[in-house]
Design a protein around this nucleic acid. Sequence first.
RNA 1: GGGCGGUUCGCAUAGUGGCAAUCGCAUUUGGCUGUAGACCAAACGCUCGCAAGAGCUACGGGGGUUCGAGUCCCUCACCGCCCA
Length: 397
Amino acid sequence: MSPIKFKIEKKLKGALGRAGKLSTPNGDILTPAFVTVGTKATVKSLSPEQVANLGAQVILANTYHLYLQPGDKIIKKAGGLCKFINWKGPTMTDSGGFQVFSLGEAMGSSVSKIASGKQSVTELPINKRKEKLAKIDENGVKFTSPIDGSSHYFTPEKSIEIQHNIGADMIFAFDECTSSQASYEYQIKAMERTHRWAKRCIDYHKKSKNREKQALFGIVQGGKFSNLRKKSAQIIASMPFDGFGIGGSFIKEDIDASVYLVNKILPEDKPRHLLGIGEPIDLFGGVEKGVDLFDCVAPTRIARNGTLYTKKGKINIFNAKYKQDFKPIEKDCACYTCKNYTKAYIAHLFRAKEIFAATLASIHNLYFIVNLVSQIRESILNNNFYEFKKDFLKHYL
RNA sequence: GGGCGGUUCGCAUAGUGGCAAUCGCAUUUGGCUGUAGACCAAACGCUCGCAAGAGCUACGGGGGUUCGAGUCCCUCACCGCCCA
């Protein structure tokens, strides 16, 4: 018996999209939904109440970060993630698989997980290169802690063990998120290893009592190669996971197509999570192609750095013209920030480096994205998904 | 009155013979997609140019030495400290 239940309420005609309800031990999630990222057991600059008030249903924390600090055993002792952070709702943890990339391959150059078909990757100048903090072998990954330089070794079993201690409702298999620049040969190698690791995660999880309260999601890899994506989806789908993640790297222009390929293969009755994707255009695409859950650091990260979502596209609040703009970020936005504060004030806070800037900006951006996904959900239920998508993207640049 | 020390792009600084000239802040503009990110990058004398680049004007004022001066010399002004 899976600890989670997924019920499809309505399907998008002629496509893979669906609206549903995902029930977890800590509450229900109406899908499609945007999962807020709270890597270190906090959504940066926000209290759990603020996160809940802006409409977020789920928080995703990170195994690797919490293992290093404060230590998963402390979280277990605290009574689990929810209790530790005072979050009354569903939670997830990522496995540390992304850090294999972000502390490994991504450190040598300017590579992003998402590559643009046009743009080329520039190597960093020698003096700016850093030693990679993650090294992979068949059994697992050796990490060097960015906090204190200490050495750690993650295996699939270790990742699951830590995730058991943290105790989120939904946990992910330990995988390797590859670089968008990886060669075909390497992608195969990494993908096959991820499959072997997936199996090990299941085996370890199955043996634990935690499987009764924590759902395990397998992760599809394959990078930018469609035949590998298909193959990975088939293999991961054949394993008894409670849900599925779609991970790894993409070419910006064909995220949709890639997701479609995968979701056509993944079992329809289980939830699908598109890992780390969160630009509005990608959210529409993902939902249409059958994604139920998204998580992404973008809304909160760009918020802290001064970029805000609007229906007409992103704006940089640092731009000189906002110094004297006494209107809210978005006129008809219902978020706390827009209902109470002006761009001029937020611009002032950013320039003055006041931490409240991050809070107001994060509330707005998260509300924008969370609310967008929930509106997309509504549009499926109301049979006007395509109109909504077309209308939104017409204005959003 | 005398003796030191100082005056460099908005602020603060580096620079002792080859410099449109360092670092930081500020300013302007970009970027950020499972968070080593409240971060990173670029521009920042003027004019022309998409650009490579070209031209002009510049290290308190004036004069001098030198192929060449922010850098050396003289002088003036202002600021600071000390002695009378």
